[in-house]
Amino acid sequence: MQIVDAHQHFWDLARNYHPWLCDAEPIPFRYGDYSALRRSYLPADYRADAGRFEVVGSVYVEAEFDPGDPMGEVDWVTAVHDTSGLPSVIVAQAWLDRADCGEVLGAYGAHPLVRGIRHKPRAAATPDQARRGAEGSMDDPAWRAGYALLSAYGLSFDLQTPWWHLEAATDLARDFPQTQIILNHTGLPSDHDRAALHRWQEALQRLASCPNVAVKISGLGQPGQPWRAEDNRDIVLETIAAFSPERVMFASNFPVDSLVARFETIFEGFDTITRGFSETERSAMFRDTGRRIYRMEER
């Protein structure tokens, strides 16, 4: 099966500054200890991890590069693409509530590989702490003013936020229907307690009611536990039921998810879980939806 990996990263720590990977003090991280990621990760490493799988395209998603030089990340990734053929397209870093937002988005809109941006909105640590209207959140007028510029430059928006903020995401999608949103990492259903998963499912279904939203099934690891298809089956199937295969993309999130599983384990798990779907539907989720949503045929 051909794969378009809808979410992966590269970094060269000998050349570039990624604060979370380069600074001595680690940040809080959902998988716990991430010291194994503090090494350069380049296309040769990715291809070795992908192994026998035929990756025919990939989406590079910003990797929290030096926030003072967002275009520097795009320039470096473009050079990687030119020499290795990967990635196919780029989701770049942007800060929607910063004064230079319009200038940065204008440069991205003119770049042949950039398809969209990611700016993680402010989020609460737990569902009980979630409040609407916080500064830096999807409700923030300054943040929304930057978001409103995306459609003018033909840019999509990769949204990484936990499921307890998907009500705000639903309002965002409805208020800006011309902007394509791609929900990252399945809405982060990190707590597999039955009650928590029920609330995640309800929030996901509300967001899926917006036709301008797609989802990437990825990032399903649990800290300290092996990635197993049987543990993730219900999450995967419920996500597909909410969005349909035409708005679902499978992704590795490598090398980040190498902390919880091998590339082979993750994609064999997706393969096993989706055996009941038609080949057309499986081709959509593994390849064609990613190509379409990220406009990989455009140059």
Rank of each mutant, 00 (worst) to 15 (best):
A14L: 07
N16E: 15
Y17K: 11
Y17N: 13
P19F: 11
W20E: 07
W20Q: 04
W20F: 14
L21S: 03
L21C: 02
P26N: 11
I27G: 05
I27F: 14
P28E: 13
P28C: 13
R30Q: 09
R30W: 11
Y31F: 15
Y34F: 11
S35A: 13
A36I: 03
L37M: 08
R38K: 15
S40M: 05
Y41Q: 12
R47N: 02
R47S: 03
A48D: 07
D49I: 02
R52T: 12
V56T: 15
S58Q: 06
Y60W: 06
V61D: 01
A63W: 02
D66P: 01
P67W: 05
G68Y: 08
P70H: 05
M71S: 04
M71K: 01
M71L: 13
V77K: 02
A79S: 14
H81Y: 07
H81C: 03
H81V: 04
H81N: 10
T83K: 13
G85H: 04
L86K: 09
L86G: 05
V89D: 01
V89E: 02
Q93S: 12
Q93C: 03
Q93Y: 04
W95C: 08
W95G: 11
A99Q: 11
A99D: 14
D100E: 15
G102S: 10
V104T: 12
L105F: 08
L105K: 02
L105C: 06
G106A: 11
A110R: 14
H111F: 10
P112W: 12
P112M: 14
V114C: 00
R115P: 00
G116P: 05
G116A: 07
K120E: 08
K120H: 08
R122N: 08
A123E: 15
A125M: 12
A125F: 09
D128L: 13
Q129D: 15
A130C: 11
R132K: 05
G133M: 06
G136S: 14
G136D: 15
D140R: 10
P141D: 14
G146K: 06
Y147Q: 04
A148Q: 07
A148H: 07
L149M: 13
S151H: 12
A152S: 14
Y153Q: 05
S156E: 05
D158N: 06
L159D: 01
